[in-house]
Amino acid sequence: MKQICSDVLSKIDDLQTRYIAVIDAKDMEGWLSTFCQVAEASYVYTTAENLRANHAMALVMDDNYQRLQDRVTIVNKVWPGTYADYATRHFVQRTACRDMGAGKYEVESNFMVMTTPEETGRSTLFATGVYFDQVVVDKDQALFLSKKVVTDSSVVERFMAYPL
């Protein structure tokens, strides 16, 4: 397998850590800024069960850049005040990286998300799973072309307002 240089891996890891930092900060504009500004940019959240059964249904299907922009609007403008808020804490660990050529890489990472609902103040596990990402790396930085979140659990705990 082709060796991937440490500079590329470093940029990819920087992108992942920036990603989890902005979502834990509920910074939706920051979240959007981790994606390439191209029409086909996408964020999909589904479950391992749906994937195994080859079902297209997802929990979130922001499969173009406009929908990514709409996600920012929904979280920042539509939903505030309608739900009991909660904090998240993400942890991510890269497990695989493949060079697809032309500056594009396929990256797999395990993730874990803890949640702390404001009404209980008690932290519990919200989700574990795998990020399947397509990352574009240029001389300055890395950005997601697509991010597919696949949770191990087939059942969502309560509801989800912020992207995983």
Partner: peptide, 26 residues
Amino acid sequence: RHRVRQASNLLGPCGMVSMEDAAVFH
């Protein structure tokens, strides 16, 4: 494809019009 894209983002525990259902139930 249209039905999948619509249902995925409109309804359910992360859906635009239904996410807050769960919060009210709780």
